[in-house]
């Protein structure tokens, strides 16, 4: 474990709980893409299947349980409890256009052709594009609530910190995983546009609105 990965995991945890609290407190999921949340639930479920077979550490197992439970809870709040506030008219990204190609790629490019490894690879590829429905929804509505932009900033920062973690691990532990690094770069690059808007607007107290 290193500081980059620890801060990255905590940033990821923060993002998930900021969103969960926003929906719970405001009793509304306006401006939030349910499709992205479904993809994130799929990412965690397919990645953490080894929860019961490979014990790494208490921290690792605890975080896996928290990530799965909190993301499933978010999907539950969005599609069941506060379904009336779900903005399906703007959440129209065709996620099958993500899941199918990612599924195919996971079969073709992986470290080991075993079910668990292919599912892990699928999860890594899917996570890199899972935020697209959310970014697409913001581009359609033209703006995002401030709390939603904080959520996105924390979520985007987590994988950017993981890139630093991989640089650290390469030099100090000789650890390198090309699949995770490439997907992590794609994932972080997708946030660049948002990061620019967040830093130039939200940091100065303005609302995040995309240039029309």
């Amino acid at each position: 474990m290193n500081i980059f990965r620890l801060v990255g995991d905590l940033s990821h945890l923060l993002a998930i709980f900021v969103l969960l609290l926003k929906i719970w407190k405001s009793r509304s999921c306006a401006g939030v893409s349910g499709k992205s949340q479904i993809l994130f639930a799929l990412v965690f479920i397919t990645r953490y299947l080894d929860l019961f077979t490979n014990f790494i550490s208490v921290y690792n197992s605890l975080m896996k349980v928290i990530f799965i439970a909190s993301t499933v809870a978010t999907v539950y709040l969005m599609y069941i409890k506060f379904k009336a506030t779900y903005d399906s008219n703007h959440d129209t990204f065709r996620i099958e256009f993500l899941v199918v190609p990612v599924g195919g790629l996971a079969f073709l490019v992986n470290h080991d052709f075993t079910p668990l490894e292919i599912l892990w690879t699928f999860s890594i590829y899917l996570e890199s594009v899972a935020i697209l429905p959310q970014l697409f929804m913001i581009s359609k509505t033209g703006e995002a609530e401030t709390i939603t932009s904080h959520y996105l900033f924390a979520l985007g920062s987590y994988r950017a910190l993981y890139l630093l973690n991989w640089i650290y691990r390469y030099y100090f532990e000789g650890y390198f995983d090309l699949i995770a690094v490439v997907a992590g770069c794609v994932q972080t690059i997708l946030y660049c546009d948002f990061f620019y808007l967040y830093i130039t607007k939200v940091m100065w107290g303005k609302k995040l609105s995309l240039p029309a």
Binding site: D50, N54, N60, H111, W120, Y175, D177, A180
Partner: peptide, 10 residues
């Protein structure tokens, strides 16, 4: 370069 057969990252 070590490719971990067990993924130890979240």
């Amino acid at each position: 370069i070590i490719i971990e057969d067990v993924h130890d990252e979240l």
